[in-house]
Simulated assay, not measured.
Amino acid sequence: MPDRYEYVPHPLLRRRVRDVASGVEGELMAVINEDVSNSIKPHWVELAYVRGPSGREFSTAVDNIKSAEPHPSQRTDQPLSGVRRGEAEARSDLGRDQPQTGAGRRETRSA
């Protein structure tokens, strides 16, 4: 039985991508040319396999994949105006690694 798939090189492999059909972002793990036919006549389709935020991979048409990384002219790692770079990074990292408790999610006002 001949192989029913082959790996295809792609410039976005191992990069952050967005599936335009579903809007889901993830990492492009592979692009595979697959025979998706159940009959004797082959039907080859290029499929992109994306690992989503949940860790599960899903497939989509390779034409639905677009880069989710910002263009170099749209970089957001520039310091905030009026704030030194170290202070801006420290502010953006506050509480990122700490889970919020139920009390932390509630409003501070009383009813």
Rank of each mutant, 00 (worst) to 15 (best):
M1L: 12
M1Y: 11
D3W: 10
E6L: 13
E6Q: 14
E6D: 12
Y7A: 04
V8P: 01
V8R: 00
V8S: 00
P9K: 06
P9Q: 06
H10L: 00
P11I: 00
L12K: 07
L12A: 06
L13Y: 08
L13W: 05
R15N: 05
R15Q: 07
R15P: 03
R16I: 10
R16K: 12
R16D: 14
V17T: 01
V17D: 00
V17S: 02
R18H: 08
R18G: 10
R18L: 13
R18V: 15
D19R: 06
D19L: 04
V20C: 09
V20Y: 04
V20E: 11
A21L: 02
S22M: 02
S22P: 02
S22Q: 03
V24H: 13
E25K: 09
E25C: 15
G26D: 03
G26N: 01
G26E: 01
G26H: 03
G26R: 04
G26V: 03
E27P: 00
E27C: 05
L28Q: 01
L28H: 05
L28K: 05
M29S: 11
M29A: 13
M29P: 05
A30K: 13
V31W: 10
V31G: 08
V31A: 07
V31M: 09
V31D: 09
V31K: 10
I32C: 11
E34Q: 13
E34I: 12
E34S: 12
V36Q: 13
V36K: 14
V36M: 12
V36T: 14
S37D: 01
S37Q: 02
N38E: 14
S39V: 11
S39M: 13
